[in-house]
Amino acid sequence: MSRRAALFGIVTAVVLVGAFFYLLRLKRLTFAPISPKSEATVRTKLREAALAPASAATQLVTLYFPSYATGLLIPETRPLALAANDTDRIKQVVLALIEGSQKGLGTVLPPSATLRAVFMTSDGTAFLDFSQDALTNFPPGIESESLAVYSIVDSIAANVPDVKRVKFLVQGQQVRTLAGHIDLSGYFAPNSSWIAPSQ
């Protein structure tokens, strides 16, 4: 073998070994599992950031999260730069609920749930259109479904005064129940009986 051929062989081997390790690293980075919760949180944060007006000052909003210990909704306040128009405000409130409690209270909807669209009518009805994930990953039960529904309705009513009632849609369609128990065919008015009495 000539010296030139030997050199060519060594260079080729080095390049191949380098490429192998590069591809291995690339594979690890590409297929690394991403926890659904963190992905949902990041997605929610991005949407919140997109909705938040650049110039608006933050204000304290009241969100109601389920407490499974009491079977009631517990208020939690947090600063949020609320948008000017009602539909964006509703989106912000729902996204904050999906993001979850900062005090370790229960979750309202699965992290994978997405709010596809919000519509407001002149009579104060807010139509919330959720993704199918809101139903498929939801823990069934009368209490869990009631807490989820009134968590959303009462939180929106507390922060968007123009909303008088809420209608739930999934993938743009009316659904019979949330997960087999609570009737979603009607329009939900705020219901304070599910909120824990203040101490």
């Binding site: 079977g71 229960g106 009368i142 209490e143 479904e145 009607g186």
Partner: peptide, 18 residues
């Protein structure tokens, strides 16, 4: 249904419209 960590628990419901 899912009623949190306490077990057993019982809750009774009557109907109210949305």
């Amino acid at each position: 249904g899912d009623m949190g960590p306490a077990i057993p628990r019982i809750m009774v419901y009557s109907y109210t419209p949305a």
